[in-house]
């Protein structure tokens, strides 16, 4: 038997690639339906999928429930927004630099700044564990949220409008189809990165320590530094997703950083299936579709939505990804009869 020959589908990469390929058809569908709204929804799904796949490194693989994902998401959004604001207003950010609306520069910056914020938050939060970790990440989320509210210069509570057109390598990308493919490329990169990380020695430590910290320590690995790096990577990618959201809607506001948005990310990841790279993509899509369709029927759409999530979590312990396992399991059982 070859190593890894019987790798379960949950750990496989290809379902994520299939989902991304399907998403890539969204602009065609949008044109065919003559409905520009379709590609807008698809862009939103892709952006939130980046945040959810990234969160899975911390939540699914490292087993740490963080309620700070929206804050890092917002930090990334504000990096893009603030730098564009400075350029539009010809006011120096620092040392005579007038800001930028060039995404080839501001997206990596958003990634970096959010990653640094996450490293700082993680360094403190990871000193705790279990429910305390959840509470302290929630507290940091609220701190950063009110930090954004306090940015009076950049719109405060009302949020920050991006008035100048954003570019990528000098090309205008306000075209929603072009922008969609930019976001989809970032999702693909995120999926490939998280998949590699999860299978590397680094990922082995995260996965082992998530389930049995005593064992990890007994063989000689203290999980703390690995968890910190995972938390920072998760935050950095959230920042990238937030930057894309800000760019796609030409707007970012503290509402995008609210703590319930952090809860949404946890729901997306758990709904789709933790510790898979493709579950969170399904989770993000299901979340945004359900939010959209239920909210058009009723104002209090969260109530039936909550019931749906409850049902999924209770019936499918592994999230929506488990449906595939179940289908395959049934098939396998059928084959076994013939053996």
């Amino acid at each position: 038997m070859a190593d890894g020959a019987s790798r379960p589908i949950r750990a496989a990469l290809w379902p994520a690639l299939v989902l991304i390929a399907l998403l890539a058809l969204a602009p065609a569908l949008s044109i065919w339906l003559d409905d520009p709204f379709t590609v807008k929804i698809a862009t939103r799904i892709v952006i939130f999928a980046i945040g959810a796949v990234a969160l899975d490194l911390t939540l699914g693989y490292a087993g740490l429930v963080s309620l700070c994902q929206a804050a890092f998401f917002g930090v990334g959004g504000y990096v893009v927004g603030i730098l564009a604001w400075h350029q539009a207003n010809s006011e120096a950010v620092l040392a005579g630099w007038m800001g930028s609306s060039e995404l080839a520069l501001t997206l990596p910056l958003a990634f970096l700044v959010a990653g640094l914020f996450a490293a700082a938050v993680g360094a403190v939060s990871l000193r705790t564990g279990g429910p305390y970790f959840i509470m302290i990440t929630l507290a940091f989320n609220q701190m950063l949220y009110y930090g954004a509210v306090a940015l009076q210069k950049y719109g405060g509570d009302d949020g920050l409008q991006i008035i100048n057109p954003l570019t990528l390598f000098g090309y205008d990308i306000s075209n929603r189809y072009k922008f969609f493919y930019l976001a989809l490329t970032m999702l693909l990169a995120t999926v490939l990165l998280i998949d590699r990380l999860a299978r590397s020695r680094f990922g082995v430590v995260l996965r082992a320590a998530a389930v049995n910290e005593t064992r990890a320590i007994a063989v000689g690995v203290a999980p703390w530094p690995y968890r910190l790096v995972a938390f920072a990577i998760t935050g950095a990618l959230a920042g990238l997703a937030g930057a894309l959201l800000a760019a796609s809607q030409q707007f970012i506001s503290p509402a995008d950083m609210a703590w319930d948005r952090s809860g949404d990310f946890v729901v997306m990841t758990a709904l789709g299936g933790v510790a898979t790279v493709w579950g969170p993509i399904i989770g993000a899509a299901a979340f945004i579709f359900t939010e959209l369709s239920l909210s058009s029927y009723m104002q209090h759409w969260q109530l039936p939505f909550g019931l749906i999530i409850l049902a999924i979590v209770l019936l499918l312990r592994g999230g929506l990804a488990q449906l595939v396992d179940l289908a395959r399991g049934a098939k396998k059982g059928g084959e076994a009869v013939h053996d």
């Binding site: 590699r196 990380l197 590397s200 680094f202 990922g203 082995v204 690995v221 530094p225 690995y226």
Partner: peptide, 14 residues
Amino acid sequence: QAQLGHSFRFWRRA
């Protein structure tokens, strides 16, 4: 792996 020094190896499949 734990005996081979740190595990900050991110790319190769373990």
